[in-house]
Structures are given as structure tokens and as C-alpha cells.
Amino acid sequence: MNIFRFAGDMTHLISILVLLLKIYATKSCSGISLKTQELYAIVFVARYLDLFTDFISVYNTVMKLVFIGCSLAIVWCMRLHRVVRRTYNKDVDTFRHYFLVLGCFLLALFVHEKFTFQEVLWAFSIYLEAVAILPQLVLLQRSGNVDNLTVQYVFFLGAYRAFYILNWIYRYLTEPHFGRWIASVAGLVQTALYADFFYYYFISWKNNAKLQLPA
């Protein structure tokens, strides 16, 4: 465990807590893409299958349970909570995310570390996580200015993967045979997807204005 990875896990945790706070405090999920949340739930379930077979550390197990629990709670809230579900604007959340699931699964069938059930699903979850934010970014573009908590959520989500890239560089330099190429390349793609969002976020922060995304 290194500081970059720990910082990455913490910003990831913060992003999920910010989202839960927003939904719980405002009893509203406007501006949030249910499709992105469903993709993240799939990512965590597919990746943490080893939860009960490989014990790595208490921290690892606890964080996996928290991530799976929170992502399923958010999807449950947005789909079934009698108050929150009414604030979900499905006519703007129209990204066809099932194509992302299919595409990532096909890619995982061809590019993986080992051709085993767990490894293929692990690679699938890595690819899917890289693109899971797309429905949310499309929704942000469509809805123009959005409320701060949603913007903070996307910002922390992008920062977490950026920290992980530093973690992979650090581990590559310090561990002899560290070759985590699938995760590193997918992580770079994921962070690149946030790049334009980060640019507009920084501009709005510098001008102390509300985030304006080009339509």
C-alpha cells in the first residue's frame, strides 16, 4: 500500500459519500445518471468476486463491502425510493449503456491476464469502469449548469483514478515485476475522459463561476 493508492481509495470513497449525501440530504437525484450508477454497481460486483475467496487485508475487504454496498444502495435509491425516484429525469439520461457493457465484455474475452472466469470478469470490470462515467458526462453536457454536489462527485471520481495512475507509476518503479498493464492503460483512458471536464471545472473554479459545460 502506498500513499497514492490510499489517497485514491479515499477520494473514491469521498465521491461515493458525496453522492449519497446529495441524494439523502436533498431527497433528489436530479442531474445524476442512473445508468452510470448501474454501471458502477456492475463494476464492483464483477471485480470483487474474490471477496470471499482471497483475503488480502481487513482494509481491502472492508472497502470492497463499502463500495458494493454504497453503489447498490444508490441504484436502489434512484430506482425504488418513493421520493427520490420521482426526481430522476430519465428522458435526459438516454445513453445506451448496454452497448458499453457488451463492448467491454467482448474486449475482456480477448484481452485479459488469464482466461479464467474470475480474470475475465476482472478485466471486464476494469474496462467498464473506464467508460462508466460517460452517461454521467453526457447528462452534465445536456443539463448545462448542474448543482455543486454533482460536480464535486465527478471531480472526486476523476481524481481517484488520477491518484491510481501515480500509484501504478510508483509500483512500477519500486516493484521488480509489477506489470499491471490492463488496469494502467484502462486507467489512463478513464482519466483522459475526465480531462475536458477537469478543464472546464478548473476554469469555472478560477473565475469563481458556476460550471458551464459547452452544450
Partner: peptide
């Protein structure tokens, strides 16, 4: 933390 060979990252 013990770094297991498998996927030890979240």
C-alpha cells in the same frame, strides 16, 4: 498490508 499476487488493488 500483505501484497497478494492476485489483484490486491480495489
Amino acid at each position: 498490508f500483505p501484497e497478494a499476487s492476485s489483484h490486491d488493488e480495489l
